[in-house]
Structures are given as structure tokens and as C-alpha cells.
Nucleic acid binder design. Structure first.
Lengths: 304, 304
DNA sequence: GTAATGTCTTTTATCGGGAAAAAACATTTT
DNA sequence: AAAATGTTTTTTCCCGATAAAAGACATTAC
């Protein structure tokens, strides 16, 4: 077994959802762009759809025969890429109790535990290292630096530098820039969410990411844009295992965003600076308050 | 052939240089720390040294029998790690003419050309991606973003933000901090270099890196410290293939550093800010002026 | 003749294996 | 008994091989 066919399975599932409305499917290249996969994969999907009686396929003719049933879908867990599986597994360990700073990370052990090859684990760790939570000892193991208070402070320091600068660049963008349309759309979505916050508070984090990414992109600096990956990753996993006060937190944040958006639309740099600072300050507070006390120091276990 | 023994060969060569003075070698663990390798490797080194008649080895007794001769050394090219070989090879292509933005990077082709396995190339590309010069298309090839004017500007923008902040943190460090001693040492080395600049101008880049890293460390922020890797990498390779005006450039930079050091020692934030800005501005100019005109835009060849 | 489909080739993602290097354990020496 | 040496085990690094997926080329349909 060398490579799982999760790309095919995931695309197949997404294609099933495309099915029920339209009575006939588009051309193979079109489906490919739609699903974000190659034509090779599209043809595998169509082949299976024909086999299972979902469509009738004859060259350009792809007629939908029936609506998809639950059993037509591949199980969700088979659609994840190996990288996602490893990441989740690793983050679970990292944020679990007992993940002390200074701890060694063993590639082989990780690979065995997750049930994957060492190559995939190695590649994951290399990719993950840019988040600043682990460090490699040459020709030897990785060292966990730990999700500590220090980490959170260093992360937010950079975030604040970058976002203040991006926000300042944002207001300097010309009137006809596409960002203003995007900003209007985000404002509408924020208002909708605010009005139904009780029921939909858990939808905030996705909106949060889109909003901040829009601002960061205004910097036109790849290092600033890329750094948001670090922030997004941390927030994503951190809040996934820390739901305390989530509703209250998100309600406050939505209001702060709306004030921030209003400031951006005013195009007054001073107002933007103030609104941005206010929001980032409370975001930092939220992150810091959720770091368990026992994780602050972490004596550095320095192996020979 | 699965893994080259370059760690052993490199450590062996370094150990040879340790030999000629002392008439007897220290214990195995001590040698290990000295050379930065495990005892296993130390023992391989000692074994060969005994074989080739360099030492007499009997348990704790490691008597040097003769001074090392040129032919005792392993060839330099056999002491490089695979990662270094791939990096050099890749950077040569990248900075060579014809490396247009948008160009595809083929793992297999690279591996074949360099004569290594695909795994090593993949790992290199993943590690390299944080420099912002390449980007991965999921399940597909990498795309070269190119060493363009835009890249240089984005890089220097971050560098300036980070260094100004680090320099400000530097002067706030307590009087008894070890950094002041380090700074004094660097000042002496700068003065020595300045006085012999005609003969030693090519030694500047190493000094430059140590100086800026010292300042960046004052930020106590891992993201700032790590970012210097990007800067160092770019400067290292860029100047390696661009020696124009090198002497003149370095002479100016040494003087700027001395002014910068004086400002730091004055502990006056305003003076530091001014000296830092001045130096970074000329560093940026140097970098920008050395980017060939033809490399500025680079139409994005966007594959399906 | 453009755009689709059909077929073949190349590349990427991933595994298992094996040598180099590190690390752990056992034994000796001072 | 602390620290060295001797020995064994484990882990890292790297390759070649293989299925999945992408991409290229050839052929057909409109």
C-alpha cells in the first residue's frame, strides 16, 4: 500500500452533492476545475457513479439517474489526507496534558502510533517546524518547545505588528479596489451572525479567519500573509479543545470586528489603529487566559 | 546505498586539526561534545586514526604518533550533508539566468539531476518553502516565485520592522546582561577588520551575520530570531554569485555597523533608531541594485 | 477547428528496508 | 562510585519501488 486514494474519495463525495440538482453533468475538464482535481480522477469518479447506477455515462452524455443516498458516500474518515491525519494526531498530543517543554519527539514512535510511514511523519514535522513549537537537533530527535505562555506572547507580538501595518495599508488602498466589496460582504455576514449569535456562535471562527486574512493581504507582503497560517493553526486547534466561554467570547469579538470594519470604511488611519489595537488586545487576552498555569515555565530538559 | 557517512568524515577531518598540538587525546565522551557527534562516531574516528598510524589507541590511552598529512583528510566534497548539496545545487539554478517566476519545479527531475533520491529533494523543498521563493500546488508540482524585486522589497520590509524592534529591545537590556560583552567583542572585531579592510573585506559577511543575530536575539521572540535565517540565506547565496563592488560595499557597511554599535552603547533609543535605519536603508539599496532588471516582473505562467 | 473524450506517460505521495549515527545498557577502570 | 570503555539497541537518514493522481498526447465528436 503506497498511497491512499483519499483525493478520489473526497472528490467523489463532493461530486455527489453536485448531483441532485442538475439533471446532467458538465464535461470532464469542467468537472475537474469544479472539484479541483485532474481529469484522471474525474473519470474514476464517473466510472464509479455509473457502476453504482447513479448516472448513465456515454461519452459526452452524463445523465443523472437518481439522487445520491447516504450509503453512496465514502466514510468521512477515508477522505482525509495523510498530512491531515498526522497533524490532528500530533496536535492532540501536543495540547494534551503532559506535553512538557523540552520533551523529545520520536519520529519512529509517532509513525508507529499513528500507523503511517516514517517519511510522512518526517515531512509533517519539517512543515510543522515553522510554527515555532518544535525544533530539530541535527542528526537526532526533535525537541518540543511547548505551547507555553511565552509562545503565546511571541506569537501575538508579531501578529500585532503585522496586523497594524496591514490595516494601515488597507485604508490606503484605492477606492475601486476589490477589497472594499469583500469588506462589505464580510460586514453583512458579521451583522447576520450578530443577530443570531445565540444559535450560530460556533460559526464565528471561520468568519474570523476570512476577515483577518483579508486585512493581512492588504500588506502585499508574502511573509505577513504566510504568518497568518501560524495564527490560524494555533487558534484552530487551541479553541477546538477549549470551549470555555466560547459564546461570550465570540459575541464580543463580532462586535469588535464590526467596530474595526467601520473604522476601515471611515478610512481614518487613527480610528483604524485604535479599533485594531482594541480587538487584538482582547484576542491576546483570550488566548493567554486559556493557557493552563502548569504550562508556563517548563524546565528545559537538555539531553546530551 | 542508503546514507552517506559524511558526519563521520567531517568530524574526522575536524578531529585531525585537533591532533597536532596535544600529544594525547581526551576521553571519548569529551571528544564527542567537542566535535558535536555521538560516541559511536568518535569511536569510528579513533579506529581509523589507529589504522592509519596517526595514534596509538589502547582504552584510555590515545597517544598521537604523528602530525596529520594532507592525504589523511577526507576530500572536502565528501563532508557535506545531502541537504547542503541539494541546497547549493538548487540555489545555483535559482539565481542563474532563466529562472523565471512561474516556472514549475519537478521533484523527480531535480533528484535525477543532482543524483539523489526524491525523498531528500522533497524534504529540502518543504524546508525551503518558508523562504517564500517557492509554493506548492496540492498533489502537484512546486511553483517558483522567483528572486524578484518584489521579493527583495517584502523581505527587507519585514527585516526593517524586526530589526528596529530588536534594536529598541537591545538598549533596554540591563547593564549586566551578557550582550554588552558580546557587543564589545564585536566592536573590536569590526575595528580590526576596518583597519585591514583592503585584505580582509571578504570576511565581512560572517561578521555581519553575527552582529545582526546578536541584535535580533534581544527581541526574545522566536519568530524574529528565526526570520534572520531567511535573510542570512538570501544574502549568503546572493553575494556568492554577485561580487560586484564587494570591497566598497563592505567598507561602507563596517563603518555603519560601528556607528550602530556606538548608538547601542549610548543607550539612547533615538540614536539607535537613526543608526539602524541608516544601515538598513543602505543594505536594502545594495540588495535591490544587484537584482537584474530582467527579473523584475516575471509573468505568471499559470498551469491548469 | 475547437473542445471534448480516449489512451498513454510522467510525477507525486507513501511505504518498507538498510546503512549511519545516536542512544541506551553493561562492564571495566581509576 | 564516578567516569570511562565495550556492546547492543534504537532511531535517523536516505534510497528504490509502487499505486494514486496529474499531465500529455492521440483521437473523435460537434
Amino acid at each position: 500500500m503506497s498511497k491512499s486514494n483519499n483525493v478520489y474519495k473526497d472528490a467523489f463525495n463532493r461530486c455527489l452533492r453536485l448531483l441532485d440538482e442538475n439533471k446532467s453533468l458538465p464535461s470532464e475538464p469542467e468537472l475537474g476545475t469544479l472539484l479541483g482535481v485532474s481529469r484522471t480522477t474525474v473519470r474514476s469518479i464517473l466510472a464509479r457513479m455509473e457502476e453504482t447506477g447513479l448516472i448513465d455515462w456515454n461519452k459526452r452524455n452524463k445523465t443523472v439517474l437518481r439522487a445520491p443516498r447516504p450509503e453512496d458516500f465514502f466514510p468521512e474518515e477515508e477522505t482525509d489526507s495523510l498530512a491531515e491525519i498526522i497533524e490532528r494526531s500530533f496536535m492532540r498530543r501536543l495540547l494534551a496534558e503532559g506535553a512538557e517543554a523540552g520533551m523529545q519527539i520520536n519520529e519512529l514512535e509517532l509513525a508507529r502510533e499513528i500507523g503511517v510511514g516514517t517519511t510522512s511523519v518526517r515531512e509533517f514535522l519539517i512543515r510543522f517546524s515553522r510554527f515555532g513549537l518544535i525544533e530539530k537537533r541535527r542528526n537526532s530527535h526533535w525537541v518540543l518547545k511547548g505551547f507555553t505562555r511565552a509562545f503565546a506572547l511571541e506569537l501575538t507580538e508579531i501578529r500585532e505588528m503585522f496586523e497594524l501595518r496591514s490595516a494601515a495599508a488597507f485604508v490606503a488602498l484605492p477606492e475601486d479596489s476589490a477589497v472594499w466589496v469583500d469588506l462589505d460582504m464580510l460586514e453583512v455576514q458579521h451583522r447576520q451572525l450578530a443577530s443570531e449569535i445565540a444559535a450560530r456562535f460556533n460559526e464565528f471562527s471561520e468568519l474570523d479567519e476570512r476577515f483577518h486574512r483579508l486585512i493581512h493581504r492588504a500588506s502585499h507582503n508574502r511573509f505577513i500573509v504566510d504568518f497568518y497560517d501560524v495564527i490560524a493553526m494555533i487558534f484552530h486547534y487551541h479553541y477546538q479543545w477549549n470551549k470555555a466561554e466560547e459564546r461570550q467570547r465570540n459575541e464580543v469579538a463580532v462586535q469588535e470586528h464590526l467596530a474595526y470594519i467601520a473604522a476601515l470604511k471611515s478610512r481614518d488611519p487613527a480610528k483604524v489603529d485604535a479599533a485594531c489595537r482594541k480587538h487584538l488586545k482582547s484576542a491576546r487576552q483570550t488566548l493567554l487566559s486559556s493557557i493552563p498555569e502548569g504550562r508556563q515555565a517548563g524546565r528545559q530538559v537538555q539531553p546530551a
